[in-house]
Write a protein that binds this DNA or RNA. Structure first.
Lengths: 107, 107
DNA sequence: TCCTTTCATCGATGGACGTCGATACACTAT
DNA sequence: ATAGTGTATCGACGTCCATCGATGAAAGGA
């Protein structure tokens, strides 16, 4: 899950044409935010700095496997990272990944 | 397709908690960019300022109905707008919509 | 050891999405 | 009018996705 990312723009001022591979990469990242639950999770992590999965399970009226699935999607997209401490798993945002996405839109 | 938009943040510095409706709205916009073809279309429009549908049909190896479908998705999301001049339809970006999305990520 | 708690994974299901050919619509030219 | 061209819509099909219950894995406590 390395998140080595090239400075590719999709739109905004002075954009360069995108090769198919870059389009695929960008679309994959936006797809990670294409679900309201995942947007809400990311939003929560953005204001909490670190969050236990059990809190997320309590915050959203969805089953535990569903929340776990959304967390995996966000992990695979490189937007969040997790670490286990004892019995609990803690998730936090990857700020650079968000910045990357923002720059993609032409900041 | 009015695009009256509230200044809602989903992440980034100093974000406020999101109500379910706002999450839905944000997710819908990101979903419009969750397809590589649509990312490429937006990218192309960002550097061409205005573009005929026939050029898009030629640029992507997809059927004309498929391109038309993607353009509709982008239109419904408020990211692009179109106008017919004679036989041809011209599409262009809605810069404010892109800026909105960028601000959503905490610019 | 056994039970409980926390989280991840599996398998199934219903619905949404991308894609296409066929067709309808709008405009132009002859 | 008729034919031709550029777009949009329709209907269908296959695939992907969100969701769930059931199950597995790991850790801690009795």
């Amino acid at each position: 899950m390395s998140m080595k990312t090239l400075p590719v723009l999709c739109c905004g001022p002075a954009v360069e044409p995108l090769d198919p591979e870059a389009s695929e990469t960008l679309a994959a990242r936006f797809r990670a935010l294409s679900d309201p639950t995942r947007v809400a999770i990311v939003n929560r992590l953005a204001s909490t700095e670190e969050c236990c999965v059990c809190d997320l399970n309590a915050a959203f009226e969805l089953s535990q496997p569903t929340i776990s699935h959304h967390l995996k999607v966000l992990r695979d997209a490189g937007l969040v990272e997790s670490s286990r401490r004892g019995t609990w798993a803690y998730y936090r945002l990857v700020p650079d990944a968000v910045s990357e996405l923002r720059r993609t839109l032409g900041g």
